[in-house]
Design a protein around this nucleic acid. Sequence first.
DNA 1: CATAATTATTCCAACGTTGTAATCTTCTCT
DNA 2: AGAGAAGATTACAACGTTGGAATAATTATG
Lengths: 344, 344
Amino acid sequence: MAITMRDVAQAADVSIKTVSNVINEHPNIKPGTRERVLLAIENLGYQPNLSARGLRSGRTDVISLIIPDLKNAYFAELADAVMTAASKRGKVVIIEQSGGLRERELEILHGPRMRMVDGVLYSVLGLSQQDADLIDIPTPIVLLGERIFNGPADHVTMQNIEASQAATEHLLERGRNRLLAFGAHRNEVIGSAGLRLEGYRRALQKAGLEYRDELAIDVQSWHRADGAQAMRKVLESGLAFDGVVAFNDSIALGAMRIMQDAGLKIPEDVAIIGFDDIDETRYSLPTLSTIDPGRREIAETAVAMLLERIDGPAVATPAREFEAGFKVICRESTAIPTASGVVT
Amino acid sequence: MAITMRDVAQAADVSIKTVSNVINEHPNIKPGTRERVLLAIENLGYQPNLSARGLRSGRTDVISLIIPDLKNAYFAELADAVMTAASKRGKVVIIEQSGGLRERELEILHGPRMRMVDGVLYSVLGLSQQDADLIDIPTPIVLLGERIFNGPADHVTMQNIEASQAATEHLLERGRNRLLAFGAHRNEVIGSAGLRLEGYRRALQKAGLEYRDELAIDVQSWHRADGAQAMRKVLESGLAFDGVVAFNDSIALGAMRIMQDAGLKIPEDVAIIGFDDIDETRYSLPTLSTIDPGRREIAETAVAMLLERIDGPAVATPAREFEAGFKVICRESTAIPTASGVVT
DNA sequence: CATAATTATTCCAACGTTGTAATCTTCTCT
DNA sequence: AGAGAAGATTACAACGTTGGAATAATTATG
């Protein structure tokens, strides 16, 4: 039915292998033959059968990206960055959504689809540190995120502690000193929440301020609705604060909306900074200050590392850790240095 | 290296083909043998080589989804819906981003990756009606969106005209009668913009109102920033209006922010309704009324149609058109029936 | 000019699976 | 019990490609 190398070979009057050699840019092909083959390919509209190539060569040029949820802006932007980076290197990306569920993540990691891809970028959410050995699969893998460190695989992440510290200092510098740590997960040590809380504490300490536990607000799931919900409770409780270090942009936006509903002015009454630099932060009212986590650098490094593993020698070189650089982005939500009407 | 059917066959003491038969749930396998094979598969951790299967059977169980941009919330949500629908039927999705560029769309459609997938869902943006024959490729294809109608392939879309008419009527019913058609593309007849403008006109006509060209506001690219930019111009021009029918949610949100900056109250001064029901509309301030375009229905129908084409007979049955149902979602941005302080 | 070295091309086998057809086994009915 | 049908299993070939070894054509070397 479809055109194969056989047809091209016939048309160009060479052997099938020569066609293959031309396509794969092997050395030692006479310019003349190359011309003829290329012409035949063009004329017949030949396209290689990737299944056959994959079978024979053991390579599919497809990599898998496991993320919790594409509807989440952070992951949509991450997926975009990964696809762009992969595309530059001639790879295609299959996205698998895990829902952040442990079982589903394991299912994907150990499922038959893994045999269809050359490697996996795995944005860990359901598994955690003590599961580190469960990710030791035959397919090359690079981990993303803050759930597993020093596991058996390469790991790319952002500078969570340093970035959170910088975000906190950003507010302190503007004269705010009753800062909510918004989005904490109380008994987590690593994980985004744990690390960001640590950064928050370090900034306070460095500024000579005491850490107050009541200012750490738990928000279990980092979606907008949860941020809104949590802020509603805070306001009801009458807790006093003049700044918010939100551990991601979505909950920051949710909280911002509730504060505004309650008549609080941002940034006059409360300054707020988020995390992730999702597109929406540029268009909210007010625009949201945030941390640019170095998404592009993360994506490009992760893809590069994965390809090294794929192409590299089978002998296991030790797992690497990489932290991308971050930037504090100052927008309207923290624009005013001094509070004019502090909530008490 | 990896475990193959050969190993399983050996372990279960059957032929390779029997293993294949068990895996593919062929009829006529003794329960006993099935047990033994399944056990061997379990013990050895066998996973089929999908490249080999693809080569032999001509099926990869992968479908491709071509969309303009994953960072765009509408397409992220569409991708999610498609992946969910595909996953239910055991298919995996490769996402290809076209940037909405004509050249890139053609490149993808005619590229070698098409040979790796069983079919394509193509959200058309770069091509248009007169290119209809360019999409007649050997791979089964289903078109999405409003750019190409009655082309050579199945087509799934929303009820643009009817939905836009309903959105407009929604505002009219609330006592607004100077409505912007926000997001028009002046010389477009089909395409989302053209159809939605038509729906707007029909609603006016039905209500006995005259269509005024100055109320149709061009917004070329439907991103938030463009909506903001366009609204800024409108306000500068001093044009009077008390309602906005925005042709998608992003430009509605962008416009909303600018109106609020200018001191306009929503919905008291201006009521506004968008299109698409993206997640964000539920969390903006105020929450945005919108049209639910039936995304899930679109995704499921499109996947179902595609699979029918893939599995169906090669004889070309005529292309089908399908329009999903829509719903008007009333939120805060149109909550107040009567204007209290109309801009003049 | 013969021979070695190099360059270009081809032949063959194999990757792991499934379709077809053939064979072997078990059951059903007279 | 034996013929025939139905059920279960297997042998073989093929899908389209590429790696490796072998061969053929060309160029360099003494």
